[in-house]
């Protein structure tokens, strides 16, 4: 069983999946998110992948099953709630239970509630270790080392994940915002150009870092809470709350600029950025938006990052 997953909304407590980490494929569709089309390519052409699970959270992801539904592989579209409420959590608990039943039926396996609970605890521990490392970024931990450690672990079964990072970086403190960072080379490039990333809003990092939520008896409710207690994605309501949270963190950490890295034709981030940019401008915080053309776009944007670093340097002496 090797299910390719996309997004942090996939409940890891149910079974192991391999997090999509970039692929160069042929399934290019005009005006369609380059990240989602690369995901489709991998599901269709990678024979080692026998299943796909993804959320119905944006226009590109909600139509993925239309492209891969006839692949003969396990295909599951998670109807993730777009709102955060008690009703939404109860509803998502049902969806998660349905997902588990579908996995069992397709693969001919049985997943016990004890197993789910064990995995729930492993996710909690893993997220706590991400949280701990995340806090160390402000003390100089290299962001490149941190992010690469996360990515490397996300390809492993949950039981084998152990996130450790070392190395220091120095430079102008900045905040990073964007979708799953398949092109981690940009982070290396930012550090080389004298930018020190000390906070972020990435789905594999700060968005899943451990957050408090109530403990309930029902395991599916608990897993739903685990997933939906994470920081919201731009695919969800509301922008106001997440912008407030982001601006507070940027201010608290003294970030001097913001890097925004998005995928081409990714509407949720395009809408979100149009609003965030105004908030950043109003607060006098410079931002640089880099748009990637595909999950394996290797353009390191050296020139833009260098110019941005120089501009921040000049602004603050």
């Amino acid at each position: 069983m090797k299910i390719l997953s996309m997004s942090g909304f996939v409940p890891e407590a149910i079974c192991d999946t391999v997090r999509f980490n970039g692929f160069k494929g042929d399934a290019g569709f005009s005006h369609y998110c380059t990240y989602a089309s690369d995901y489709i390519s991998q599901v269709l052409s990678d024979d080692t992948i026998d299943g796909a699970v993804f959320p119905k959270t944006c226009d590109s992801s909600r139509s993925i099953s239309s492209y891969i539904g006839e692949s003969g592989k396990f295909v599951y579209s998670l109807a993730v709630p777009v709102v955060r409420s008690e009703d939404a959590i109860s509803y998502y608990a049902y969806v998660i239970r349905d997902y588990k039943t579908a996995v069992e039926a397709h693969y001919g396996i049985s997943i016990s509630e004890d197993e789910i609970y064990d995995r729930f605890r492993m996710v909690e521990a893993r997220n706590a270790s991400i949280n701990s490392l995340y806090e160390s970024l402000a003390d100089g931990l290299s962001y490149s080392s941190y992010l690469n450690a996360i990515h490397e672990n996300f390809t492993k079964p949950l039981a084998e994940q152990k996130i450790e990072a070392s190395g220091q970086s120095a430079g102008i403190p900045v905040f990073l915002l964007g979708s799953y960072m398949t092109n981690a080379g940009i982070v290396d490039s930012a550090e080389k150009n004298g930018l020190r990333i000390i906070g972020d809003d990435l789905p594999e990092s700060n968005r899943i870092a451990k957050r408090a939520f109530p403990v309930v008896d029902d395991i599916y409710q608990l897993v739903a809470l685990q997933v939906l207690s994470s920081r919201t994605s731009p695919t969800q309501n509301s922008y106001s709350d997440r912008i407030k949270e982001t601006m507070e963190e940027i201010g608290k950490k003294g970030c001097r600029g913001v890097l925004v890295v998005t995928q081409r034709f990714c509407e949720p981030y395009d809408y979100y950025y149009s609003v965030l940019k105004k908030a950043l401008d109003d607060a006098g915080i410079p931002s640089l938006k880099l748009e990637l053309d595909g999950s394996l776009d290797q353009n390191l944007h050296e020139a833009e990052l260098g110019a941005f670093a120089s501009m921040l340097e000049a602004c603050h002496g």
């Binding site: 119905k56 998670l78 109807a79 695919t235 969800q236 609003v275």
Partner: peptide
């Protein structure tokens, strides 16, 4: 899913309550 994003930008512009109604469709 474009509409909730677009409406979020309008909510910031007008500073009025935003209600999103979530319909799972055939996906559950």
């Amino acid at each position: 899913n474009t509409l909730p994003g677009w409406w979020n930008t309008l909510a910031k512009k007008y500073n009025v309550p935003l209600i999103i109604l979530d319909y799972p469709g055939e996906f559950t």
